[in-house]
Simulated assay, not measured.
Amino acid sequence: MKKKTWIIISVISLVIIMISVSVYREVLAKGPSVETTEMKEEEISSLLMIPGTIKLEEEQIIYASPEKGELKELLVEEGQEIKSGTVVATLHNPQLELELEQNKLSIESANLRINQLDKQLKQLKDKEKTLTEQLGKGEAKKQLDPEYEQLEMEKKLANLELKQTTLQKNMIDKRQSELEIKSTIDGVVLTTKKPDTTSLENSMAEPIVHIGKLDALIANGLLSEYDTLKVSTGQKVILRSDALPEQEWQGEIAKISLLPEQNQTALQSGNQAVQYPVTMKLTGDIKALKPGFQVIMEIETDKKQANVLSINALHDDGDQPYVFIIKDGKASKKNVKTGITSGTKIEILEGLSKEDKVIIDSPDSIKDGMEVTVK
């Protein structure tokens, strides 16, 4: 009984093995299954990608100014919306008040001196009339000319003194107006902080008021000297952030600096690397973005009609890019010359025709001349 059971098991096993070998040979004969695509003529654009930082387009940063005066009062709060011209803080300067009082006295003194000289000149004219009646006009003039000259000279000096003190008053008035610190933009108060008065350095370390316009953002980045040749103002930009991977924002190049920002470390090492600051102005809905966000900026540098292929069809072993096409049921390797890349597409300059069936997402095992089955 046991012998019969073993014979049955052996027969069944042999049948299974034969079926498996048959299936394996059939699959192997057909080769691996592959998908194909064709080269198409489409619009393609080249993208330049550079890192950048989101910043406020308009902001006002106010620091303590000990040379102008001590902070007397902060008149705004964080989060407060303000208009241009709003007084945000006032300063106190006792020395300036003393100078103002001294200036008032100087002006008053100069005016009194001028009035006194005018009275003396009037008295001298009366005296001239009397002498003219007694001695004649020529003799009277001869006697009084030295006094006239003296008084006129003193009056000129008094007028110069008055002019000088008036100029001083204008300067003091200007300094007094600076005791009221005003907003220069419409915006939101981002931070307020009273200065640390323990030292001059500490008092100027942080701003006392920071105002920004949150509905106008820009992105700043750096271009290499070669990349500056590819871009110009007005070009469209797409921005993406790792903090918000599902979103993207539109913008355009607003400014490319004419002067480079040199990397001092590179200069010291002898590598004259230069980079040019570039500014992008953001458009559309930017509520999700905040100043300080790190973004990747995609700049469209070239757009044209070209023969394109899915980048998933391309192979590159470091020598020359190539693809596999279907030829007589087999995979045939063809070298190609490529152009610009845009997203999942790449420009094909040479090596393919539009009739070629190109294998995409091919398995690693595929070889030139291998039989394949098209899905």
Rank of each mutant, 00 (worst) to 15 (best):
S33V: 10
I61R: 11
K169H: 13
K129Y: 14
L289H: 02
I340T: 06
V209R: 03
K367E: 14
S365Y: 11
K303T: 12
Q80N: 11
V34N: 00
N312C: 05
K255I: 08
T36M: 04
E133P: 01
G339R: 04
K182F: 06
M280D: 01
T265I: 09
E149P: 02
E355R: 11
N170P: 01
M204K: 14
S224F: 01
W6V: 07
E139W: 13
I286R: 02
Y148N: 07
P291D: 07
T197Q: 11
A216I: 03
A331Q: 01
K40E: 15
S232D: 12
D302N: 13
L75C: 07
I8N: 09
V88C: 04
L71Y: 09
S45L: 08
P146N: 10
P32G: 03
S342P: 02
E35T: 05
E178P: 00
V295S: 01
T373D: 08
D317A: 11
I181C: 03
I17H: 04
E133I: 05
P260L: 04
P291E: 09
L151K: 07
S342L: 06
E178W: 10
G234Y: 14
F293R: 03
L258H: 12
I107E: 12
L144P: 03
I348R: 01
E57D: 09
K327P: 00
L258K: 15
Y63D: 04
E139C: 07
Q275P: 01
V27A: 10
Q123P: 01
I256S: 05
S106N: 09
L96P: 02
K3E: 14
S224N: 03
I359R: 00
I360P: 00
G85M: 07
T233P: 08
K281I: 07
S332C: 03
I348A: 04
V34H: 00
N220E: 15
V358H: 02
V358W: 01
I16A: 14
P277D: 03
P277T: 03
A331P: 00
T233S: 12
I299L: 12
S46F: 08
K304I: 06
Q116S: 10
S362I: 01
E161R: 07
K354A: 12
K281L: 13
I19P: 00
K137D: 11
I107C: 05
K337M: 11
D285C: 08
N93K: 06
N103Q: 09
K236S: 12
D227F: 02
E252N: 10
D316Q: 07
N115Y: 14
T228I: 15
L352Q: 02
A288Q: 14
K354L: 15
L349E: 15
E178C: 02
K72L: 13
A29P: 00
N159F: 14
E43H: 10
Q134Y: 12
